[in-house]
């Protein structure tokens, strides 16, 4: 594993948004994630790559405790966000998830209007004091998700009636509306066509300005296009992590090299 640049304690706090150490995940008796240590920097895009079943999605879901919804799943180790352990008993996963939003593999808009889809998060978290504030949040979220022009005249129509790419951007808008600090994206483009994918990738690049983004992707090209740092997972182990450029041009580990040259995966 590549050494992180040596920095002092205060600096580390500002430079590291998410710090995971010795993370283990078990599904029943299966040891799905083994000893993962990783630091994720704020306001950047970090990509998790690796062959299917390598645990990259599982690890992603530990960051906002989505694994809590699976009965047999158990997480050990420590994940710090802004220096606070998210698995601390004092932490409410509901509050955590407001801070760490998530976008899923398949677009999953609720069977409600476009407006209500975006307004859902702000409503449950009480982010708007009145209707006009809510309207503003909805509009700005849709704008930031690049969906405003397409959606502004059909806010009352069901979100499920949009095209796949629009649905996924709606889901991103929905996640942004809660004003999270981190957005986790689990293969957000795998169900989209190339043009929609390009739009979403463009969006991710824009969002980097304000959010810490972690994206799981099975496409190495996508990782190369959108991310600043890349982590390679294999069989539940974090094999290598570093600046995207380095990982793709000069991998340190034999397995990383084999994977990016297409020898397995």
């Amino acid at each position: 594993m590549k050494e992180m640049p040596k920095i002092d304690k205060a600096d580390e706090m500002s430079e590291t948004k998410i710090a995971a150490s010795k993370v283990q995940v078990y599904y029943g008796t299966t040891h799905a994630i083994k000893d993962v240590d990783i630091n994720i920097q704020p306001r950047s895009v970090t990509a998790f790559i690796g062959p299917s079943g390598c645990g990259k999605s599982t690890f992603l879901r530990t960051i906002n405790r989505m694994n809590d919804t699976i009965d047999i799943c158990r997480v050990e180790g420590e994940i710090l966000i802004d220096g606070e352990d998210i698995y601390d008993p004092k932490v409410d996963p509901v509050q955590l998830r407001a801070k760490v939003g998530m976008v899923f593999q398949k677009p999953n808009p609720f069977p409600k209007s476009i407006y209500d889809n975006v307004a859902y998060g702000p409503r449950i978290h009480g982010l708007a004091k009145n209707k006009s504030e809510l309207d503003e949040i909805v509009a700005s979220s849709l704008q930031k998700a690049g969906l405003w022009e397409e959606a502004k005249d059909r806010l009352d129509e069901p979100g499920t009636g949009m095209s796949g790419g629009q649905q996924q951007r709606l889901c991103i808008a929905r996640a942004i509306a809660v004003n999270p600090e981190v957005i986790l994206m689990d293969e957000p483009c795998s169900a989209l066509d190339p043009i929609a994918t390009a739009k979403v990738e463009e969006l991710i690049d824009e969002l980097r300005e304000n959010f810490t983004i972690v994206i799981v992707t099975h496409s190495m090209q996508q990782a190369a296009r959108v991310s600043q740092r890349t982590a390679f997972f294999h069989l539940g182990i974090l094999v290598e992590e570093g600046p995207t450029q380095d990982i793709f041009t000069n991998p340190q580990d034999k397995r990383t090299q084999d994977y990016i040259t297409g020898r397995f995966g």
Binding site: N64, M66, T69, V94, Q95, L96, R97, A98, G101, M102, V103, F104, K106, N108, P109, F110, P111, Y120, G121, I124, H125, C171, R174, A175, V178
Partner: peptide, 19 residues
Amino acid sequence: AMRDGSYGLGATKSETVKQ
């Protein structure tokens, strides 16, 4: 996926059920 979407936004179970 509906449930995941709602939990992912930080909704509680009852909010997910009701809304």
